[in-house]
Amino acid sequence: MTRGPRKAAAKGALWKRWLVRGAWIVGFAYFCTLGLFFLAAGRPDAMVFQSIGLAVMPLLIVVLFALPRGGAGLVVLAVPLLQAGVL
């Protein structure tokens, strides 16, 4: 178990890592939702997709934050492909 100054340094590093990761994840989720809105634009059921997009955006943020680094990377690759496939 890490103790003393090393513990504080490790904790600080983890905090900063999570903050940076959070910023990346929020940006990614925003652009995914934006992409969905662009792809759905002009369709008669665009509103359905937009509503789904707004529900999925916070879920995506939580899922990406929950996944370990490798898993999150796979999701980052999979989501745009999924968008292209569905629409």
Partner: peptide, 20 residues
Amino acid sequence: TYTGAVIHAPRLFPMISNGY
């Protein structure tokens, strides 16, 4: 929260301004 977010979605995503 979800319905509120959907109603004001055009503020965060200006390209869907005609939707909601």
